[in-house]
Design a binder for these strands. Structure first.
Lengths: 201, 201
DNA sequence: GTCTATACGGCGATAGAC
DNA sequence: GTCTATCGCCGTATAGAC
């Protein structure tokens, strides 16, 4: 159930990593401390020893996940000075690749910000995103206005994230996991084309 | 907290409607039977009298929500024989309007299908969606191939639904509920333009 | 149909031995 | 640091009066 590499971590990190996987799938209230202990192969008492309470453990997980998420968006614009077309190809590929490796992050994040609307303020997440948009704008020809940049990135994220979030439905419609994955991949070129159309208009 | 019209319902429906609102925000495990009873202004025993168990109540809610969701997609293509451009305008406006009235449905639905992957099969939801895509395809000039139709509808839904799901983040970034709503509205024309570009290519 | 009282289990959390 | 035992509460569900 757990990936191999988790076994090499310290007990504290092993707990955090296990909790991350469980919380991402089941949400805060769907997870039992006993589950985390069992999955991680450690004693339940240790969870409280290291993280004090379930809420604190959850917050630690949420922080980890959101920092991964922010970094992933930052990374996709972090490429050399090439043509706009190439930048778009690179960005879409990078984002799809991140989502393939972390398919649960978007649903988790979106569920949580809708359930507990204060969480973004507590983490100062709004400012971090603003900084990120700022730096993303450097990837574009500077004649474009800020509003356009924001809409452009927003479209990129919408089109890339949504297919991964509805993958269970795609699996049900297409009839198999493989066909759903194939469809996901066929979306990639649609996203690229759509963004290129948007950039030249 | 509850809308006025709920008071006119039978006790059974009052419970269902209250449960729907709570489950949509908090998820299955985040809701207490006592909460539902208190919000609905009825006795907790009645919840079991009418719905037997929490799980059964939840399933009743999920059924109600998904049938609303399916109907909303069906409706947006249910317009007269006008030009493709007008159809797109109509479809986007109709879908945005539905989402404004039911902003929580997408997050709820997506969270649930990812948490309990068997739920779609149990409800026969895949077939219902396939039938819907079929009927949606009649809204398009018949020279288009089925794959294109599917991608087109998928793009429409992706671009429309995503902004509503991240509204708490938009609120945090823009600084106020009103500005977030304004941004949501500015997305509407982007979605229309994007779809028109896609249709003519 | 509606309400009260209560049974029963599960869960988060702590104390304390090793 | 790790493990066992246990406390106390909370939540679902039921029994039974009205």
């Amino acid at each position: 159930m757990l990936p191999e590499w988790v076994n090499n971590l310290t007990t504290k990190d092993k707990i955090l990593e296990t909790a991350r996987m469980l919380f991402m799938k089941e949400g805060l209230e769907g997870v039992r401390m006993q589950m985390v202990a069992d999955e991680a192969g450690v004693n339940k008492g240790l969870l409280h020893y290291y993280y004090k309470s379930k809420d604190k453990l959850f917050t630690a997980v949420f922080n980890k996940v959101t920092s991964d998420l922010l970094k992933s968006i930052g990374d996709i614009f972090d490429n050399e000075e090439v043509s706009l077309e190439e930048k778009i190809d690179y960005a879409v590929d990078a984002y799809f690749s991140f989502l393939s490796k972390n398919p649960r992050i978007p649903v988790f994040f979106i569920f949580e910000i809708n359930r507990d609307s204060g969480i973004l303020k507590r983490l100062g997440f709004g400012d971090k995103v603003k900084g990120l948009i700022e730096s993303a704008s450097h990837a574009f020809p500077n004649e474009k206005d800020p509003d356009f940049i924001f809409h452009f990135v927003f479209t990129l994220v919408s089109l890339s994230v949504f297919p991964f979030m509805v993958k269970p439905l795609l699996k049900e419609i297409t009839g198999s996991e493989e066909k759903a994955t194939t469809f996901l991949d066929s979306r990639r070129s649609i996203v690229k084309t759509t963004l290129k159309n948007m950039a030249i208009s």
